[in-house]
């Protein structure tokens, strides 16, 4: 019998190996792609990032983007959790609103930017609304699908023992779906990062999305790559933190390591 992977050194070395392979592949591509289609090397990108942090306050851009994503996801998920439960628990409501959820979920946030500028202006509320919007629709579907997937046997057992509707909801549905709420937040987090550049098109003056836009406008490819890598790294770090919180918080639930 093999040991669970998470207890072996491989748990740390395999992701590291994946990163090393990706960087080597990137470096090889940068050797081949020169001239008009030039790809900056990892070293050039790292140098651009170092210059950014030391001379151009790139840390402020990073901090602003991380906070925007955090707040957008917090607002989006805070609304999505109760809405998701309600939609799942009350079938008529679900039937009524599911097409609308599908409709709005499909709209790319970038298409909403002109409307956001006109109706919400160019302040922080515009960027947060775009991120909250994206996070909400990503999370709400995961939540109501997870509630709908609660095994009927538990609900029937609860009813047989005389539990009221509220008790069924509080004692069976909520605990059963808590891990899925974390999944919803993880999905929302990924979507929020993917939406960041669009959100910062609402005339943000600082932020990683703005940093990338400026780099593109002035053809500064190493800066462009540095911005992209920072977005990816930030997303990975936040996801890992969330996974760690999830492990501690829902320890009661069995998870199978494959």
């Amino acid at each position: 019998m093999t040991r669970p992977l998470r207890r072996t050194p491989l748990r740390w070395t395999l992701p590291l190996l994946g990163v090393v392979l990706a960087v080597v592949a990137w470096w090889l591509v940068s050797l081949v792609m020169t001239g008009a289609k030039q790809v900056p090397s990892p070293a050039a990108t790292l140098h651009a990032a170092v210059v950014g942090f030391t001379e151009h306050d790139l840390l402020l851009d990073l901090r602003l983007s991380v906070l925007r994503v955090l707040i957008g996801v917090a607002i989006g998920c805070a609304v999505a959790v109760p809405v998701g439960f309600v939609l799942a628990w009350y079938r008529p409501l679900r039937l009524m609103f599911e097409p609308l959820v599908s409709f709005f979920r499909a709209l790319p946030p970038i298409a909403l930017i002109p409307l956001v500028i006109v109706y919400l202006g160019i302040g922080e509320q515009a960027r947060l609304s775009v991120l909250s919007y994206a996070a909400f629709f990503a999370a709400v579907v995961v939540i109501y699908e997870s509630v709908a997937a609660v095994d009927d046997i538990y609900v029937r057992a609860g009813r047989a023992m005389g539990a009221s509707g509220l008790e069924l909801f509080a004692r069976i549905v909520v605990p059963y779906t808590v891990p899925q709420v974390f999944v919803a937040v993880r999905v929302a987090l990924g979507i929020a990062w993917a939406t960041l550049v669009a959100a910062e098109l609402t005339v943000a003056q600082r932020g990683l999305g703005t940093y990338i836009q400026d780099a593109a406008n002035f053809s500064r490819k190493p800066d462009l790559f540095a911005g992209i890598v920072l977005i990816g790294l930030s997303a990975v770090v936040m996801d890992r933190v969330l996974v760690a919180v999830m492990r501690v918080s829902v320890r009661w639930q069995d998870r199978v390591a494959r």
Partner: peptide, 13 residues
Amino acid sequence: GIAEAQALNAGSI
């Protein structure tokens, strides 16, 4: 300039 015009009309600038 398009985004500028939108912001100008909305009174943001």
